[in-house]
């Protein structure tokens, strides 16, 4: 505790101890006991994470080359090479629509809630009467589970009984079948998903904006920049790390999307998503483990594209530091 009382040295002042460089931690020689403690502190969580996340993920990759109904021991597995992948690409009618829907889903989430969330965050990032009230209202949906969101929006989208058609006045004449019409239901569901996601993004940006030094903005204002210029030239660059977090969160959300369509119609008829196809094949009554795993690996490869881009980003940050 004594450490806390002694004032930390402001960054930038010369360090008394003979250390090589700032930023890079000096290679302190740790006592053996400390080494052991540190090893345990890192080792146990890493082991849990590896065994429960990475080992099964590798297992899925292996299983994707098999044909197996999930019953019996591992000796019952028949290995079929790339057959599952070939079949999925060439003769699985739901596959390409699902890929397309996943990409639309991602694109929508990356664009709409991000822009809306950023706008709301900028609007709310000031001394504002009722500011906190607005904030609370706007991020309220994000604490709801996607399953719940799916249910609530069904009450809105029902053709004859739903809120939307009644408000539009089309309920009695020619009700729009928001969730049943495969040409529009994906977008209807995206609105619901975006509804929940926007609050989250707003929150992340709000947190980021709070960290922008007000002096910077003042300086810009003194230089005669208008609000928009200030935003794009001063604020936005500072938000860059937040943008990365937003992107990651959005990609996770976009690729994991599952509960909401599953609740609405089991992900059929225009709402196919890769996650749904995987689930249908591996945990339903009918298990086609090899087939489902191959689909999962395809989903994994798509995620991996983003994961690598992201890690690259983190890496660079690390090197700059």
């Amino acid at each position: 505790m004594t450490a806390l009382q002694s004032p930390p040295k402001p960054a930038g002042t010369t360090d008394p101890s003979p250390s090589p460089r700032r930023g890079r931690r000096r290679a302190t020689a740790l006592a053996p006991r400390d080494k052991l403690v540190l090893g345990l502190m890192l080792g146990i969580p890493s082991l849990v994470h590896l065994v429960l996340v990475w080992v099964p993920a590798m297992g899925s990759i292996a299983l994707s080359f098999s044909s197996w109904d999930g019953i019996g021991g591992f000796e019952d597995i028949e290995w079929v090479g790339f057959q599952n992948y070939v079949d999925i690409f060439t003769r699985y009618p739901r596959f390409w629509p699902a890929v397309q829907h996943n990409l639309i889903w991602l694109l929508f989430l990356i664009v709409v809630p991000t822009v809306a969330g950023l706008l709301l965050a900028v609007l709310l990032d000031r001394q504002l009467r009722f500011g906190r009230l607005y904030q609370s209202a706007l991020y309220l949906p994000m604490v709801l589970s996607l399953a719940l969101v799916g249910f609530i929006w069904q009450l809105i989208y029902q053709p004859e009984q739903g809120l939307l058609n009644n408000v539009l006045g089309t309920a009695s004449t020619d009700p729009v079948n928001w969730l049943g019409d495969p040409d529009i239901n994906l977008y209807a569901v995206l609105v619901a998903a975006g509804w929940r996601h926007t609050g989250y993004i707003m929150l992340l940006y709000l947190a980021g904006l709070k960290a922008v030094d007000p002096a910077l903005k003042e300086a810009a204002a003194l230089d005669g920049a208008n609000a928009r210029q200030t935003f794009f030239q001063v604020t936005f660059p500072v938000l860059k790390p937040v943008n990365v977090v937003v992107l990651v969160v959005t990609v996770i959300e976009g690729l994991r999307a599952f509960d909401i369509v599953y609740v609405i119609n089991k992900g059929r008829n225009g709402l196919e998503l890769l996650s749904v196809l995987v689930t249908d094949n591996i945990i339903g009554e009918s298990s086609r483990i090899g087939w489902g795993s191959a689909l999962a690996v395809i989903l994994l490869l798509i995620s991996l594209g983003f994961i690598i881009t992201y890690l690259f980003q983190v890496f660079r940050e690390e090197e700059r530091a």
């Binding site: 059929r268 094949n281 009554e285 009918s286």
Partner: peptide, 27 residues
Amino acid sequence: TDPRFASDAATNGINAFIQNPDDIDSI
């Protein structure tokens, strides 16, 4: 029938037919 066929191919085939009754061949 085999549950693997019913839950996926059959359900979605019938759905596709209802949506586009003219596509019987490809369905």
